[in-house]
Simulated scan of single mutants.
Amino acid sequence: MENKVTKLFNIKYPIIQAGMVWNSGWRLASAASNSGILGVLGAGSMYPEVLREHIIKCKKATNKPFAVNVPMLYPDIDKLMDIIVEEGVKIIFTSAGNPKTWTKWLQDQGIVVVHVVSSVKFALKAQDAGVDAIVVEGFEAGGHNGRDETTTLALIPMVKEKINIPLIAAGGIATGKAMLATMVLGADGVQIGSRFVASQESSAHQKFKQLVVDAKEGDTQLTLKELAPVRLMKNKFYDEVQELYKTSPSVDDLRTLLGRGRAKKGMFEGDLDEGELEIGQIAGLIHEIKPVSEIVKEIISDFEETKRLAMSL
C-alpha cells in the first residue's frame, strides 16, 4: 500500500496512531509502529524528562519509525524539542500553534515535520511554513478541535484543492471503510485516535476505556469554545459546564470551573464524574478493547475488502 505517506514515514500502511494526551505512551506507540503504522507519543501530557523516558522505552520496544506529537502551547516546549533532537526522533507532529515557530529549526535537525490543522486557512499557513505534510482534522474528532465545526468529509476535499503536500485525514475514522472514503476524497493517509484509546496498550485508565466501548451516538459534545474547543464525553463535569453557560459566564468563570488536571483525572486516573473525558464521535462505533495489532489488521482487512467491492460495482 505504498504512497506519499508510507514513503514519507517509511511505514507499511498509511495510518497514523494519533498522539493523544494521557492515552499515547510508549506501549501504544511502539505497538502501533510494530503493526506497520506510525506510532506517536503524546507529549502534551508529559514533563520533559517523562517524555525522554517514553522515547527511550519506545526505542527499545520497536525498531520501526515512531513520532512525537507536541502541542505548541506547551509551556516548556523548548525543552521538549531539545529532548526530541537529543534522542534522535525523526518525525514530529506539531499542533495548537504557529507552525512557522519550529518547522525550519526541526527540519534543519533532519526531522520530518507534520502540522495538525482544522481549516483551509490554517492548512495554507502550514504549507507556507514549509511543513512536510499536514493532518486535516474534522469536527468529529475527540480532544481539542477547530471552532468552525467543519466535518471531515467536507474539509478534506476543500483542503485538497488548495495544497500540494501530503494530506492526512483525521476525525471520525475508525474503520477501513472510513479510511477508504477519506482517501477517495483526496487524503493520502489517515490519523486514528479514538479507536486506539480503546486498545490494550493505551495508557488510558481501564474505566475510561470501558466508557468509550459503552458509548452511543450523541454521548459527546464540542464545548468550551471560549477557551479551546474540546469534544467531551457527557458526564457530571460536562453537565456543570452546561449549567454555567446558562449564567452567561466570562472566560475567567469557565477557566475557574475547568481548573487544572481534569484531563489527567478523567482519562488517566479514571474519575468518570469530575474528569475531562476527551473522545471522538466515532466512539459509538467502538465496541471492544483489543490489542493494537488486531485493530490494525481489522482496519486494513476492511479497507481492502471495501475497495474490492467498490471496484466490482
Rank of each mutant, 00 (worst) to 15 (best):
V131C: 12
S119Y: 06
V131Y: 07
Q221T: 08
M183N: 02
D302Q: 10
I56T: 08
V50F: 06
K160P: 13
L155H: 09
D302K: 05
Q242N: 14
S199E: 08
D252A: 15
W22Y: 11
A31K: 10
K79N: 10
M179G: 06
G275M: 01
R52S: 01
K297G: 07
I163S: 09
V112A: 15
T6G: 10
M158W: 13
K216T: 08
S248P: 13
S203E: 03
A61L: 07
I192E: 01
G44V: 01
Y13T: 00
S194H: 02
L155K: 04
I282Q: 05
I165Y: 04
M311D: 05
E288G: 09
A283S: 12
G218P: 08
E86F: 00
T247G: 14
A178L: 11
Q127E: 07
K125E: 11
L8R: 08
A43W: 02
G280T: 00
H54S: 01
K297T: 03
Q221K: 14
G172I: 03
I279D: 00
T182W: 09
R260Q: 12
A263N: 03
E53N: 03
V112F: 13
I300Q: 04
L227S: 10
A126V: 02
V85D: 02
L222N: 12
V68T: 01
T247R: 15
E269K: 02
G270N: 02
V213A: 08
H115L: 07
K59C: 02
M311C: 07
I84D: 01
Y245W: 11
V113G: 08
I165C: 07
V136P: 11
V213G: 06
M179N: 00
E49I: 00
G284F: 06
I299H: 01
I286P: 09
L28A: 08
M179V: 02
R27A: 13
S203C: 01
D108W: 10
Y238F: 15
N34Q: 06
G138W: 02
L28V: 05
G171Y: 00
E2L: 14
I156E: 14
G275S: 05
A181F: 05
S30I: 09
L153A: 12
A133Y: 06
